[in-house]
Design a protein around this nucleic acid. Structure first.
Lengths: 243, 243
DNA sequence: TAATGCAACTGGTCATGACCACTTATATGT
DNA sequence: ACATATAAGTGGTCATGACCAGTTGCATTA
């Protein structure tokens, strides 16, 4: 069952096996999985490895533990990851919609104060990359996105590159070795300006959900600052909270 | 430094010590903490204990690791907990406002279909506890909250009890041993009805942020279903996302 | 001098073994 | 029949020791 020569660590292989069993419905909600000592014998791995695998699944919301009783399967409802950092495209796919985009503008600009602060840039900063896109779900306008990036020494991203690759995150990873791992997001309500309304194909003054997100890399450096105006009638935000 | 006889486990004591040092600014952002082998000698605890403490602080956003290089302090900005499950009162306190409330209605009602589904109750369910409160921050209306509870066998909560204790969560813990540990939340935009507007002291048709939350206990049973209508001009939602 | 390779760090994974705290069912007492 | 101990199970914590996999700096080599 578990291959010690696999390039994946054993605790990770075990977590995958157990997750599979759970999502396949082989164990009902609120039913116990085998005890840690039993798993030790079942899969011929030591208890620390078992516990590491279970820890992972507990954090991911698939299992919960009860001291002295056992480890149990969470009900389906809670088996969605906690607030996961996703791109707009991934978000749309999770909702069962086909993501799309129309690039409105792309180029270097003098950053507004707020953007400069969020990107942690000095006051004498010259220019940052700004990308404005209309974001679509099943070809219907879902949001208006404005992103800002501070790329190293004169490097940049062209409209052609972006249109070809599609995902900025993939470009950042391949060209600059930047992997988004954490983000701070705020949500508030605003009303659509005439320009925003016409782009989003709604009436001026319609309510919008405004998301502002700062994304950080593995080393906790700022990668990007993103503003998205979502159509209030088509978008709902999901979050999973823990104690 | 670490007391083996303390009622707190050692890894937890160590985490507290390190967190203290970090928040006190004794180690600058992006600077390394002592290596795990050094901490082993410094505090006379074994490496698994060290790693458990560091794991905790990494999950809480205070530290980040880099294989082969070391463990480093995160910049202040990211040192706020990930999406934490908080009550309205705690939320207000974190924002530096004094929480308050006005109980509008409290009593048993026939649950609407949506509420019944969220509380995972059978179709023939008779009645649930419904509490409607106006929530204040620094005595200014911030939101209109409607909560639903399914309490065991005829037990209930009276207006007097709630007014005296103040916190429903504390009552749930003391009377029913229910501790909120997880929640699913959705956010969307709506417009205020005349009644909502007058209670929140805004104009009818003003944009509102609607939060719907289902809260679960340690054993993943539903505790409550809560709807809060926040004033769009006074409330902003924060979230921390991870990958 | 510049490139190379080695050694000494770092965190990541894993095994073994032990004891504690909590829960549950069973056996034992009254 | 009931209450009470006991034992066996569970997860929670911790120590010791080992090896792997990246990173870095320094010494060696060309």
């Amino acid at each position: 069952m578990i291959d010690p020569d696999d390039f994946l660590p054993r605790y990770y292989q075990l977590a995958n096996i157990l997750r599979e069993q759970i999502t396949n419905g082989q164990i009902d909600a609120h039913q116990p999985i085998p005890s840690e000592r039993q798993l030790e014998r079942l899969y011929s791995v030591s208890r620390p490895t078992i516990r590491q695998a279970i820890d992972l699944l507990v954090r991911q919301g698939f299992l919960y533990r009860q001291h002295g009783r056992g480890t149990f399967v969470s009900p389906q409802k809670l088996q969605k990851g906690i607030s996961e950092l996703t791109s707009f495209s991934e978000d749309m796919k999770q909702r069962g919609l086909t993501p799309g985009q129309r690039i409105l503008e792309i180029g270097l600009v003098l950053p507004p104060d707020k953007v400069r602060q969020q990107l942690e840039l000095p006051a004498d900063c010259w220019q940052v990359l700004r990308i404005e896109r209309l974001r679509l779900g099943d070809d219907i306008p879902m949001g208006l996105q404005t992103s800002y990036y501070n790329l190293p020494d004169g490097q940049t991203i062209t409209r052609e590159e972006l249109e070809q690759v599609g995902s900025i995150y993939r470009m950042l990873q391949e060209k600059f070795h930047l992997i988004p791992t954490e983000a701070d997001e705020t949500l508030e309500v605003t009303l659509a300006t005439p320009r925003e309304a016409s782009l989003l194909q709604i009436e001026a003054g319609s309510p919008l959900l405004l998301s502002e997100r700062t994304t950080y890399s593995q080393t906790r450096r700022v990668i990007e600052f993103v503003k998205i105006l979502y159509r209030g009638d088509r978008y709902r935000y999901f979050a999973k909270l823990t104690r």
